[in-house]
Design a protein around this nucleic acid. Structure first.
Lengths: 215, 215
DNA sequence: TGTACATCAGTGAACGCGCGTTCACTGATGTAC
DNA sequence: TGTACATCAGTGAACGCGCGTTCACTGATGTAC
């Protein structure tokens, strides 16, 4: 490695340990949920003493923030990669479902019941909006030529500051909100286990909801 | 009060204290969420010592169970009362929304991310099904005469053991699942605060979703 | 290449906290004769 | 109506636990001359 390389061995070691801490944190979240996340437990699991982690994270909140950021980042990248390789709205929706099922607690960390006492920092909102933009673009492309102009679209024409930076017809915003809430409705009930006992296939419900949105 | 009255003063006192414990528990849940519920904190709030509560609840899990039962019971009663006074499917949906907004954490206790380490007992499933039945009946009544027979309905015709006791056409079951997941999608994102920052009116989104289901 | 110093990862002890839960006990309330 | 006894609500002390976090320290790694 060239001498000019800015990453010193120590820096590389640091980022590596940070990464391992977060990996263990994800394992712990997958098992017991985000509210049970404990620095001491992670340290023990890594064969280290508890205070050692304070070399890598200022406190528990910063670790959670980093996890939230990583999750948003991963979802944003996954979706925009799918969009870049030609996925349409239905494709993006299925990508979202696959992503959520791959690690339910990760999805629930972002979109489930908020972790009590934790407030997400400003910059995660930016990534969250990046995700929205990807979906809104796909919604715009999926709009029928003659948009019906629902009451929701009319309302959004006047209440679109949240998408002010991004040009899109109000019908696309309406479609986006419908899409988001419907997919989340199926996913969150499925992941929370509210369909267990009912033996139907949640994927068919998901596809059905998708079909009524686009068909 | 007649001598034959089976409720002795002590029994009345017991149920009264139990009720107050649960009231305080709801306050605590409303503030910090269900996973932060603490027997000691409730006792302190009532001006009692911690161990005193063990006269009324065997342990923390039994208290949570009682809260879950009460919430399900209240929702089931609210919905069936609405149905009894002539509310149609849209009316029931709006009743559900009102109920959820009245106490967000109560709604999230039932339908949000599960409390880690807590498993709901069997008999709450029964009340949950009671709720489903009320909604399914309204769905049956709301079906157009010539049901379209979606792929979801076709699937449900073969996977309806969860509604085996209750006669309803598969199209009604399909409508019920769509309704449930869509309303929950809007409600849970709204209650979890994922719409804050976007200035649109969640009620209009709710109504829009409802309209596409029924109209 | 070798030595002197600075950096920094990790440890163990400690603090204060709140939790769920058990237990022996006090004191008030209700019951039986 | 009065006394003797049983029931039971509530207390305070205690146990063991795990948490987040601070701090003084050790020992290894990297840097400068």
């Amino acid at each position: 490695m060239a001498k000019s390389d800015p990453t010193t061995p120590r820096e590389r070691y640091r980022t590596q340990v940070r990464a391992e801490v977060m990996e263990r944190a994800w394992e712990q979240i997958a098992t017991a949920g985000a509210s049970a996340l404990s620095l001491n437990a992670i340290a023990k699991h890594m064969g280290m003493s508890g205070p050692a982690l304070y070399r890598y994270f200022a406190n528990r909140d910063e670790l959670i923030t980093e996890l939230v950021r990583e999750a948003y980042r991963d979802l944003a990248d996954t979706l925009s990669a799918a969009a870049a390789s030609g996925a349409d709205l239905a494709g993006l929706a299925r990508t979202l479902r696959t992503w959520a099922l791959a690690d339910p607690q990760r999805y629930l960390l972002l979109y489930g019941t908020p972790v009590p006492g934790y407030e997400a920092p400003e910059d995660t909102r930016a990534i969250s909006q990046e995700i929205a933009v990807t979906l809104i673009d796909a919604c715009t492309a999926a709009l029928p030529r003659t948009a019906p102009g629902s009451p929701l679209a009319a309302h959004l024409a006047d209440h679109r500051t949240w998408a002010a930076d991004h040009p899109a017809p109000p019908e696309a915003l309406a479609l986006f909100l419908s899409l988001w809430t419907r997919l989340h409705g199926v996913l969150s009930l499925e992941l929370a286990g509210h369909f267990t006992g009912m033996q139907f296939d949640a994927e068919i419900l998901f596809e059905s909801e998708l079909a009524t949105l686009i068909g």
